[in-house]
Design a protein around this nucleic acid. Sequence first.
RNA 1: GGGCGGUUAGCUCAGCUGGCCAGAGCACCUCCCUUACAAGGAGGGGGUCAUAGGUUCGAGUCCUAUACCGCCCA
Length: 1090
Amino acid sequence: MPLGEYNPKQIEEKWYKVWLENKLFEANADDTQRPYFSVAMPPPNVTGSLHIGHALNMTLQDVIVRIRRQEGYNTLWLPGFDHAGIATQWVVTRQLEEQGINKFDLGREKFIEKVWEWVPKAKETIKKQIEKLGASCDWSKQRFTLDEGFARAVREAFTKLYSEGLIYKAPYIVNWDPKDRTAISDLEVEYKEEKGNIWYIRYPLEDGSGYIVVATTRPETMLGDTAVAVHPEDERYKHLIGKRVKLPLVNWKRKTWDGKEIDNLIPIIADDYVDPVFGTGAVKITPAHDPNDFEIGQRHNLPIVVVMDETAHMNENAGVYKGLDRYEARKKIVEDLKKEGLLEKVEEHVHNVGHSQRSGAVIEPYLSIQWFVNTKKLAKRAIEVVENGEISFIPESWKKTYLRWMYDIKDWCISRQIWWGHRIPVWYCQDCGEINVFSDDMYDNIAKKVIFNMYGDTRISQTFSLKEIANYLFSKNFTHPEKTNLEFYEKVVFKREIPQLKDETHIKSFLEENYIKVPVLFSKKEELVGFPPHVVFYLYANRYIGNSFTAKDVYEAYKKHEKEIKFIYSQIIGELKKEEIFKDIQTLEKWLTDHAYGNCEIKKIFFTETDKVFSVIEDNIVEMRYFIDLRCKNCNSLNLKQDEDVLDTWFSSGLWPFGTLGWPEKTPELERFYPTSLLVTGFDIIFFWVARMIMMGMHFMKEKPFEDVYIHALVRDEKGEKMSKTKGNVIDPLDMIELYGADALRFTLTVLAAQGRDIRLSEKRIEGYKHFANKIWNASKFVLTNLENFMVNSSIYQSVNDLDLSYEDKWILTKLQKTIEKAKDAINSYKYNEYASTLYNFFWHEYCDWYLELVKERVYKGSDKEKQIVLSVLVYVLDKSLKMLHSIMPFITEEIWQKLPYKDADYLPVAKYPEKDEKLIFEEETKLIEALKELIISIRTVRGDFNIEPSRKLNVYIKPLDDNFNKVLNKLENGIKLLAKVNELTVDKSLERPPNTVVAISKLAEAYIDISGAIDVEKELKRQEKLLKDVEKSISISEKKLSNENFIKKAPTEVVEKEKALYEELKEKAERIKAAIENLKSIFSGKEEN
RNA sequence: GGGCGGUUAGCUCAGCUGGCCAGAGCACCUCCCUUACAAGGAGGGGGUCAUAGGUUCGAGUCCUAUACCGCCCA
């Protein structure tokens, strides 16, 4: 037997490996002959595992990618992973917490190490899932948004934008999580309704003429108030605008965020934002602790006073309240206001309170200094390319959403107070305050570039050893574990050989030549030896003094390099002891003598000495370290400190479409595969990701990042609720694959992916489509089994064009061509559901239900010639069907296809996608077979209506009304017998209705069914009358239309013609039914007479 | 408050630029283990296309309003 039982697990396990081994998914940048098709996979976060939304996203991409590959495009689907700053940091933080480790105790470097331990695990899990789904992506080109090349691209992008003045620093309100001590994005804030109060507070007017009452839900922030605002048209307050009030309780000086002192007199201002109906119509303005107040503050140029620290405790600006938690402070302040008689009243109030999705802490809007991208300029081109249709959104409605947001775009805050991510490539000079932005383009030497990148990625520190460099370069790369990091730099990042870093000897001499050498000495007790000896060795190692030197040489050299030496050693050994030794030459000479061979009393010998001329003892150098001399561009100082913050994850993923192809290097991949052809993603990240990619792409590449953006829906549960772990309604794609197979899951997701609507997924659906997989399997089994029997000593045709085809062959071939065309149209307009259901209907309801059945007679009992032809057609149609279905159901189709008697490729992913063949369209024969189907169905219906078991064979007389149809009937006699369960079949053009038969009326024939006395004339009469009623109803509708002059005049002629034809047909049918009824009636009356 | 989308069979949804009697899957009812498939086959019932107007020869499809539901932005 060629095929056994359908067992998805068994077949799905083996094929992916085979495809990979044969490199079927690898795109070739050197192939410039074929047109290309490229897709950058939205990189999943390395936070855990994939959910069903990912499965949908991957499937939709894979369907198109596989089709394009089969169609012969040079196809690249580039996969990867996103380091997902906050999300990943959070996952690792929680893991550590479970072990009782606090991330602040651990410290930045150690924490990042922990994340790097976690990330490969998550990556492997996700990769396996993607493979299980069958995604045909090119793993040889996979990338990670935090890999060596991406980090370089990010620094390049940042530097460029900064130098163009498009990146700037400014104070800004962020959602601050006081528990995790980090800013979080708007997305990660969850609003919950909570009961609270509105406090009405009196702010006395400066001139003592009374007070203005403000309403607030957060009285503790009043300490940071810098204005009171009212609506400009509010008659109650108009006269007060411009006056000042005295801020209650605050009788101390406060400092603004940039260090200016201000007092407690604050202005009353007018702003449209104020809702005159809320509270008293007057609101306090706290720019540092409320986003709206911040905006108003910006508009009115108000000072900004921060009154809390990063743990949400009151700070020095809060005067007597300093050190209190914000809620304690609230209580105390309310009490104090009451005491002073400034609290007018308290009302209960339900309001939305923001909580951190992750830690649960109540979010504190908090002023901090952040980096921004000026997006107005970037948005300009990004708007144009969408407006003019260079980039199209599918469904198109998203274009509007995108544009609306882009027209009103706000500057983009790109700094995040977390540790995991691309650290901002900005170094602040500690001496002159200069802001230095560095990328590796300040080095002309490629090896130096690499070393800077390693430093920038915190793989090495600013002073480093040969060993550290070598260890890193020769260890396995994270993204491509089959490459070392050096190879990754060579093959992916810079695309050229880096001979200086090939082996340790090369690296060593390279370091010696290019970097400041920093000797590190140890005493015999293995402890780091102090400052003075290091200096001398340092001067010696860098040839600032020679092999033998006097105290004067050392003194002079030291004075010249003092700053540099002090800075470097303070980095390595912390405190610098005994600087006084370098006070003058005499003290220095004494010290040198003391530590020289022969004179040393303290047993720490560093030098030899002859006549006050010293030499270092090189054996004392335990380790030679090197120093990257990043210098301040303004004052040349080495004393730089890198920005603590990291970049928003979207800053790096915004570079994804070209960063993955090697940018900023001009790689062949970038040349070949950019712009990418398609982006498939969910609507939830249009602003976060899609918009940023378009802006970045237009800015850096001067070209759009993709042609089409297909926006798919959210996968919800069957009740339409969002899937979430807490609700427990998640459908895990792996579970589904386990139960029903990846093919069934993929088919379900594809057939449900109608444009513009959420997908409600239920397990039942997946189960249902597993039945389809089973159907494919069994139909194929039928074909292959019969083929095997036949092929023992014969062969079949690969082409069906010139065969002596029968009616049903021509019919199925025609249907196939129409299916090919319809499927192609569907997929080219991204109508996935239509694509899937077209194939489904063709395969199941045409090929299986009718063709296979009609053909069985020939397959079983035909002559060799007949068998040869029919099997050729069966295989031909199966081959084309499998090729089309492959894009949705890759595994089962490959398994079957491999068993076909001929193949145009080794594997299905690279076999040629079917094209419509006009020569295989036979309209006449198709019409005849359709009529035959109708006839058979009408006979079956009679059976049903008279409750005749299918096992009981009937005698049927058929009267064809058409010569050609007569031929078909004669030829397919046995097929009809089989399909309609007929015993004796009589076909005769001149037939009169035999007695005791029921009439089944169809287009090209009438069938008289002998139900052998079981006929109930009355029942049959009723049945026919019902049919007549239906037909007459249709006739009257048709009649109404045709009698309408306007219809005839205004409707297109083809519609009118069609209507007329329909009318004639219906009319004729009605006549025939009437005749049948008359006939029945005569029997009926005849019976009565008897 | 502004914007977008939805409301079609018991359930989940298709239905394109208006044109046969509005479709599918599941569920339901009747019959059948017929040699590819019971994960199957054959037949059947079930819809005033949310409501009210309008445009049109013709409206599930276009327009307006209303109701309800959902999402996004503020």
